[in-house]
Amino acid sequence: MSRVAEAALAAVGTRFRLHGRGLDGLDCVGLVALALRAGGYAGEVPTGYSLRGGDPSVLDRVLVRVASAAPGDVLLMAAGPGQIHLGIRTATGFVHADAGLRRVVERPGMPPWPILGVWRMGV
């Protein structure tokens, strides 16, 4: 399994916290940053955003867009009107910071939301 997917799975159970960046609390951006750092990413992580909106083009500046998801890939999803959401693909599903459940969880299978794009660290 990829180090990115392993790090995401290790964060399962961590509480949800908007703009959270550590194991004391994570949001979807913080989860992805934590997982990518385990895979070697050392760049900046966006901050100061709201629960709705966002600029997904930041992913194109740091990752490579791919056609289909493999374990460790970053998923960009449309979770609701004007709401984008990130997750990490695993071998059996995906990990994401679930604001409703107030924690990081792994869900089996593919996300229930439309996938807007998939990115991978250095192909």
Rank of each mutant, 00 (worst) to 15 (best):
M1S: 12
R3V: 05
V4S: 02
A5D: 07
E6I: 01
A7F: 00
A8H: 00
A8P: 00
A8C: 00
L9H: 04
V12C: 13
G13I: 04
T14H: 04
R15K: 13
R17T: 01
G20C: 00
G20I: 00
G20V: 00
D24H: 03
G25H: 11
G25T: 11
G25L: 11
L26F: 08
C28H: 02
V29L: 08
V32E: 06
A35H: 00
A35F: 01
A35Q: 00
R37M: 06
G39K: 08
G40T: 10
Y41A: 10
Y41L: 11
E44Q: 13
V45H: 07
P46N: 09
P46C: 10
P46A: 11
P46T: 08
T47Q: 11
Y49R: 05
Y49P: 04
Y49D: 03
Y49H: 08
Y49C: 04
R52I: 12
G53D: 12
D55A: 10
S57K: 08
S57T: 15
R61E: 15
V62E: 08
V62Y: 11
R65E: 13
V66G: 03
A67L: 12
A67N: 09
A67Q: 14
S68W: 12
S68T: 15
S68M: 11
S68N: 10
S68I: 03
A69V: 01
P71G: 04
G72E: 02
V74Q: 06
L75E: 01
M77Y: 03
M77E: 13
A79T: 14
A79H: 10
G80C: 09
Q83Y: 09
Q83F: 11
Q83D: 11
G87K: 10
R89P: 01
G93Q: 05
G93S: 09
V95W: 08
H96Y: 08
A97G: 10
D98Q: 13
D98T: 09
A99W: 13
R103Q: 15
V105K: 07
V105Q: 07
R107E: 14
P108D: 12
P108Y: 02
M110D: 15
P111A: 06
P111I: 04
P112R: 15
P112N: 06
P112Q: 13
P112S: 14
W113P: 03
W113C: 06
W113M: 09
G117F: 07
G117E: 10
V118T: 13
V118C: 04
V118A: 03
V118H: 01
W119S: 08
W119H: 05
M121Q: 14
